[in-house]
Design a protein around this nucleic acid. Structure first.
Lengths: 210, 210
DNA sequence: TTTTAAGTTAAACGTATGTTTCAAACAGAC
DNA sequence: GTCTGTTTGAAACATACGTTTAACTTAAAA
């Protein structure tokens, strides 16, 4: 229980701090202080800060992509001949995200912000790691989207897919500050689920434009 | 000519390096080395690294917002009673961006990547600086968008505006790598202008969804 | 020519970072 | 209870950073 406890505490603290301040701005000392763990524990259990960053991603990205995978499998089994609608695909992804955060409201936000950071923050090693590790699920998602948008030119679809990715990653990565602005300017609170509910029609309309 | 030359060299180097690696990851030593300038020059001319970051933004954000301002002024003068269409507004912005980069292809990409970083990368001081300095143009843009989308709820419009911002900032900030992928996978080259031409209908459709 | 201010330079400063070390504490197996 | 491999702990290490200093150069003003 000793090891896995320390490892988990480090991952939890790192996850939250990375999401809040970014990777370069979060020091190992801050992480280990928050985790109530010795400084050396990070290098002992993970080897390096880079490896810790990758481990943080691995912990939620692996179940996440598995959830999507099984979701797509289910559709393929139940309705093997009808291609999925764009909205269905997006909802599948949204459901997987919600599934990973598993009740914990904060984790959904952390999850999204991390995903955004992964793209926007430099960290070449992270990009390489993610591309290598999760290329399969990425290609599969692309395949169902291709079936859902048969009229689109391949290059056009590629770009629109990344437009969607960008709107999502950016929104999620600056979610907290945007939520604060909404609360201040409109006197309304927006939960993460509500934001997702607003985002999906935007994305679906965008990818089907014209 | 000594001062302004050094200042310009520092700004040029910082702009390119920030866009490529982010703010925290770019050291003053890297900047001054690339600018072929003494390390102390940054603190002498700008006062601090934070002030340098703000100066980099100021240099292109000020003419950028002026271009948008005059564009909106023109429309207000020529057609004072017809509200702008979403597409017109977006094209106005696109034209302003192109105007600032002024021939230099790389600056367009740098410009957008910086804008994206400003939002996603922590840097509280940058956010505060931008909000204080450019709140006027932001509000004015929001106002014309409001007139162009009268059916939208205010909160909904706020979020959709940031979805657009996200799609744009993200796309531009990872433009180079995405262009490389397109060239490899589809055997086609995409210029920045072509990407913008693909982006605008996506954004317009998104903000008008439903 | 002398003075004066601005700009540049090389070196150093203090601090914070990621990483390593090695002794101490702990666990389960025998 | 002893032994063995694993995990923790406090301290130190080397390095990189932003910033400061003070001597030096430049060039225009007096």
């Amino acid at each position: 229980m000793a090891q896995s406890d320390t490892v988990t505490k480090i991952l939890d603290a790192a996850e939250a701090l990375f999401a809040e301040h970014g990777f370069a701005e979060t020091s190992l000392r801050t992480i280990t202080a928050k985790a109530d763990v010795n400084l050396a524990a990070v290098n002992y259990h993970f080897g390096s800060k880079k490896a810790l960053i990758q481990a943080v991603f691995e912990r939620f990205l692996t179940p996440f992509s598995q959830l999507i995978e099984t979701g797509l499998d289910q559709h393929a089994k139940l309705q093997p001949d009808t291609p999925m609608e764009v909205e269905e695909i997006l909802q599948q992804v949204a459901r997987a995200i919600a599934g990973v955060s598993h009740g914990d409201r904060r984790r959904l936000s952390i999850f999204m912000r991390l995903a955004g950071l992964a793209y926007t923050q430099g960290q070449g090693h992270l990009r390489r790691f993610l591309q290598k590790e999760y290329r399969g699920i990425f290609r599969r998602l692309m395949a169902v989207i291709t079936m859902a948008t048969p009229d689109l030119q391949p290059v056009e679809r590629f770009w629109r897919f990344h437009f969607m990715l960008g709107a999502t990653a950016f929104t999620m990565s600056s979610m907290e500050s945007l939520q604060a602005i909404v609360e201040h300017d409109f006197d309304t609170k927006c939960t993460e689920e509500e934001i997702v509910a607003l985002l999906l029609p935007f994305l679906a309309a965008g990818i089907r434009a014209k």
